[in-house]
Design a protein around this nucleic acid. Structure first.
Lengths: 238, 238
DNA sequence: AGATTTATCTTGTATATACAAGTTGTTTTA
DNA sequence: TAAAACAACTTGTATATACAAGATAAATCT
């Protein structure tokens, strides 16, 4: 968790506040310290503090009200892209477990890959692995992931089970996702999917194809996701 | 299209660039004028220009590269939340038509409404209407919309057919969406939905429930959306 | 007591400036 | 010629400052 000393101040402010919100130090609906307070805390000016708060706003961590302050939104794990939420109560991390079905291995891109690849990516090949996420022991989400092979040290031996892929990429390789796109369909589960998610064939599932672009050139993360939304739904903030 | 003279400069810059991108004056992959160029054009400073460019980045209109410039992304209509894209070619606006099934009427909120309402919203009631969107004449997306009733002048008589609801809200009432959330399920089409979307019962469809918050206090837009993703998919950038 | 004003918080918008650092093409050097 | 250095662009980060405008509670006035 060591902070690069050259890391910009506004990012440190984002990280600090994000951690406090995730930890529950600031709860939903509460106000963050005012911009001027944060200026004093970090010995900086409002432009920098506001850059951090704008970032948190875009991540969905807070909303801001003119004359009022920065209001903490629902805490969220991961990227805030498409996280899972339970219909009953808020599903905490503790009940969400991930099993690796196929361990990450280097290989060539599939011939009929679902996104266009540039020649650079094409030549590098990819790392492929599949995971199955459970909530309360029930399989809910199956994910096939392809990452451009840019020879990440020891990546093949990393354990992606408990912590998220994104955490590993960020903490060990300083790789962060900065944009992406996703396509969404509703489909009937085929034989394979229905077996994995333990549902009947022809049960409707959400199918997503995602492309996540990182701060590293030519390093994209592609994934194909299948989700059983019978008991849970996909939740998205923006 | 008259610009409020008190509208902030950075918003004007956003609007101008957005229009130019949507019109195709700047095409995908091209570079926008540099920040310093934009400063000269608008007689302002980089902080303001960057505020605009940050906005456009978050809307998904551009991506920025250190030392390079602001690169135009895929042009997108609407809010960039979840727009429709064709599987074959990019679906232009021309083929997307919208039919009003039930015209907007003032009424009370349903007793079992799918989002929690605050007392203020509850007492105001809502405006309800339903729309069916077609691509190439085929029904693809059915949408039930609820807007908090804050007595928008002449709103009940507005035509929401061709232009988007968001355009009407913005141009006539200066209402803009600033955040929101959505929940996504895959379900079997029931009798009603299958009839509307002209598909067999039990055909899988994407069901979304959305809450969009606007810049006007207590004015939220709620919608329940059903989408046939057999020929098209839901597309999302972030 | 109840309405109005005021003071003081808050965030929103903006100017002016400086240097760091990534990108690219040109020039110089070996 | 090929590599290295440089210049001139670009965006990234940051300081310092100012005034506008929304929110709120205390102080004042009727």
């Amino acid at each position: 968790m060591n902070k690069k000393e050259t890391s910009p101040l506004y990012k440190k402010v984002i990280d600090d506040l994000k951690t406090l919100i995730d930890k529950g130090a600031y709860k939903k609906g509460e106000l963050l310290p005012s911009e001027n307070d944060l200026c004093k805390t970090y010995s900086t000016t409002r432009v920098t503090v506001r850059q951090a708060l704008t970032g948190l706003t875009n991540m969905g961590y807070i909303t801001r009200r003119h004359g009022k302050g920065s209001i903490v939104s629902e805490p969220r794990q991961g990227l805030g892209i498409l996280s899972l939420s339970g219909v009953t109560a808020g599903v905490g991390d503790q009940v969400l477990t991930t099993a690796i079905l196929q361990k990450q291995t280097k290989q060539n891109w599939p011939a009929d890959f679902f996104y266009e690849l540039n020649p650079e990516e094409q030549s590098r090949g990819c790392i492929f692995f599949t995971r199955l996420r459970h909530i309360d022991g029930m399989p809910v989400l199956y994910e096939e992931t392809y990452i451009t092979n840019i020879s990440l040290a020891r990546f093949s031996s990393r354990n992606l089970e408990n912590c998220s892929l994104f955490k590993v990429l960020k903490e060990h390789y300083k790789i962060e996702v900065n944009e992406g796109e996703q396509k969404i369909w509703a489909i009937h589960a085929d034989k394979n999917i229905s077996k994995l998610l333990d549902i009947k064939t022809s049960h409707p599932v959400v199918h997503m194809k995602r492309r996540l672009q990182t701060n590293v050139k030519n390093l994209s993360i592609y994934s194909s996701v299948y989700c059983n939304t019978a008991a849970y739904f996909l939740h998205d903030y923006f």
